[in-house]
């Protein structure tokens, strides 16, 4: 019992030590890597049903629509 009680501060100290390490607190962004909590991916929605390629091509078209120069009649 006595040794066990002696262990308590040691364990507490060990637990406290853990907080003092110099670890990066944010994961560096890497393109195309999901870094997070459980959340459905955009192409897993009702509209796309997991078809990532179709989602991407739709997005690309949509982005292109923002370019009024491309939408202008060529002259």
């Amino acid at each position: 019992m006595k040794t066990l009680l002696r262990m308590v501060p040691l364990l507490a100290a060990a637990a406290l030590f853990a907080g003092c390490g110099e670890e990066p607190q944010v994961i560096k962004y890497e393109a195309g890597k999901y870094q997070g909590k459980r959340d459905t991916l955009p192409w897993d929605s009702a509209a796309y049903g997991g078809d990532k390629a179709r989602w991407e091509s739709d997005m690309r078209a949509r982005i292109g629509n923002q370019n009024e120069l491309r939408r202008m009649p060529a002259d």
Binding site: P9, A12, A13, L16, F17, G19, C20, E22
Partner: peptide
């Protein structure tokens, strides 16, 4: 604050 602060507490305790 996190690192020195944490160490200050740990070192004092030990």
């Amino acid at each position: 604050i996190t690192q020195y602060g944490g160490w200050a507490i740990v070192v004092m305790f030990l």
